[in-house]
Design a protein around this nucleic acid. Structure first.
Length: 498
RNA sequence: GAGCCGUUAGCUCAGUCGGUAGAGCAUCUGACUUUUAAUCAGAGGGUCGAGGGUUCGAUCCCCUCACGGCUCACCA
């Protein structure tokens, strides 16, 4: 930015700042002690009082916040003070605060911070209001706030200057508060189920555990390139080998891929691993997590997402992927079939496929293109083909499929889980098959993590694992249109001077 | 990465079939001792995203670029 160009309003505010200094008032003031609660507590306590009772009790409160609206009329003024609890109106009279302080108030701008002490009363319109006895100037705002009525609307400014969005758009402010509450509720659920929260490296030598391109960075002292993690999976499984039995990590991962309303290069996942669980146990666990998150927003666990009512109160449906395909398309992949058979079916149903795909890839494509969008209410789809599930345990009855599931809601995936593969020899073969796929054209593959295979060779107990996209879960629960609306500072191109 | 759309005052938006721009809020001056998108009277504020082209003349038409949004493709 550099030296800014001052517009008329910025010049006036700087002059007012100097005028305050000339009066011995620090325009960027000091500690203030709101001895009372925040505005929302005052509303909770006194909104139901009638005017007479308030007058009789003469309750005195002290609050601090940003003045976001000002309605002056001669020798009295009303204004709105914004703190983290919301807004509360205050009332300043020249005959109460005195000529000097009243003039300072008249000269103050929307955006300035004030400390207010006064008694509570109700206006004619019935609004709970603080009649100021003492006003304390706390901080000058040198720039004007966005339009008080429309708020900040330009999406670019909303994301780049989130602080302005938070000041003027209360829905946005509240959504971020809800985000934190949801994450706390999820942690509480995991803790109550005897999972240990852990932290594993973000800087990795091998970016594995998912199929995604990593961000590359450089460590100077070691003179090696390192990768930002794309998943926490293989680290957490090592902790299962180490005997921690139930672990989870909720944190940031990074994927060097495109951006759109559902993808940001950095985002939060929660992965959980529990020894001796199979994927059915993990379904129960997942259901508990989503119910706990929904409870934060709605006591009856009914969530409205873009006009669709989602009921998280009922038990979530559970359906095999092949059955789901059969239900929605009539195609039966339970039958033994060759690659040629599968390709023929794909051609008949307009499902596109790559030359290197096996039958399992085509089954998955059927699901993704013809079934997925139709799944509105929470449903677990399980039994993914082995070819697309390199870290999942093979199903005992049918070796074409794995003990894996994904949770689908409003046509989108919200969780991915499986009974973990703990056979190191099988694991190595699957890594090698992935590497071969890469050579054949799949450019997102998992590099062979030798150290992880070695860990498995020491023995990992049967384990159920789960991954949840936290941002998408928050979007769902807060009816957000874009992932950028649940991230304070979504990734943006740097703004160049033009 | 491709297609479509957007960028005008601090903010939210109009507008000019090509003749260098308006409103509301905000700001400034004045009035007003219960307002609440306060009201009333007056005033100031813009290299119309950047660069180039066509033209007597471009904020408007054309080209390039920057940033953003949406859709599609890939991914969670």
């Amino acid at each position: 930015m550099g030296e800014e160009k001052l517009n008329d309003q910025m010049i006036v505010r700087r002059q007012k700042m100097q005028a305050l200094r000339d009066k011995g008032i620090d325009p960027f003031g000091h500690r203030f002690d709101p001895d009372h609660d925040i505005s929302s507590d005052i509303h909770t306590k006194y909104d139901n009082y009638d005017g007479d009772l308030l007058a009789k009790e003469g309750n005195v409160v002290t609050v601090a916040g940003r003045m976001v609206a000002k309605r002056g009329s001669g020798k009295t003024s009303f204004a709105d003070l914004l703190d983290r609890g919301g807004k509360i109106q205050f009332y300043v009279r020249q005959d109460i605060v005195g000529d000097d302080d009243y003039q300072i108030f008249k000269d103050s701008d929307i955006g300035d911070f004030w400390g207010i002490t006064g008694d509570l009363f109700k206006t004619r319109a019935g609004e709970l209001t603080i009649r100021a006895h003492k006003i304390t100037f706390l901080t000058k705002a040198l720039r004007p706030l966005p339009d008080k009525y429309h708020g900040l609307a330009d999406p670019e400014l909303v994301y780049r200057q989130r602080y302005l969005d938070l000041i003027t758009n209360r829905d946005s402010f509240d959504r971020f508060i809800t985000r934190t509450k949801i994450i706390k509720a999820i942690r509480r659920y995991m803790d109550n189920n005897h999972f240990t929260e852990v932290e594993t490296p973000i800087l990795e030598n091998v970016a594995s555990g998912a199929e995604a391109r990593p961000f590359v960075t450089h460590h100077n002292a070691l003179n090696i390139d390192m990768y930002l993690r794309i998943a926490t999976e293989l680290r957490l499984k090592r902790l299962i080998v180490g005997g921690m039995e139930r672990v989870y990590e909720l944190g940031r991962v990074f994927r060097n891929e495109g951006m759109d309303p559902y993808h940001n290069p950095e985002f939060d996942t929660m992965e959980t691993y529990a020894a001796y669980f199979d994927f059915n146990d993990v379904m129960d666990e997942t259901e508990g997590i989503f119910k706990a998150a929904a409870k934060v927003v709605a006591n009856d666990l009914k969530i409205n997402y873009h006009g669709t009512e989602l009921d998280f109160g009922k038990p979530f449906a559970r359906m095999h992927m092949v059955d789901a395909i059969k239900k929605y398309t009539g195609v039966d992949f339970w039958q033994k079939m060759s690659l040629e058979d599968a390709r023929k079916l794909a051609d008949e149903h307009g499902v596109e496929y790559e030359s290197w795909w096996k039958v399992g890839h085509i089954i998955n494509a059927f699901f993704e293109t013809l079934v997925q969008d139709k799944l509105q209410q929470p449903i677990f789809i399980y039994g993914h083909p082995k070819e697309i599930s390199p870290l999942a345990h093979i199903n005992r009855e049918d070796h074409r499929f794995t003990d894996r599931f994904e949770l689908y809601i409003v046509g989108k995936e919200y969780a991915n889980a499986f009974t973990e593969l703990n056979d190191p020899i099988d694991q190595r073969q699957r890594f090698e098959a992935e590497a071969k796929e890469h050579a054949e054209g799949n450019d997102e593959y998992q590099p062979i993590d030798e150290d992880f295979v070695e860990a498995l060779e020491y023995g990992m107990p049967p384990t159920g694992g789960l991954g949840v996209g936290i941002d998408r879960l928050v979007m769902l629960m807060t009816d957000a249109k874009s992932i950028r609306d649940v991230l304070f500072f979504p990734t943006m191109r740097p703004k160049k001077d033009n």
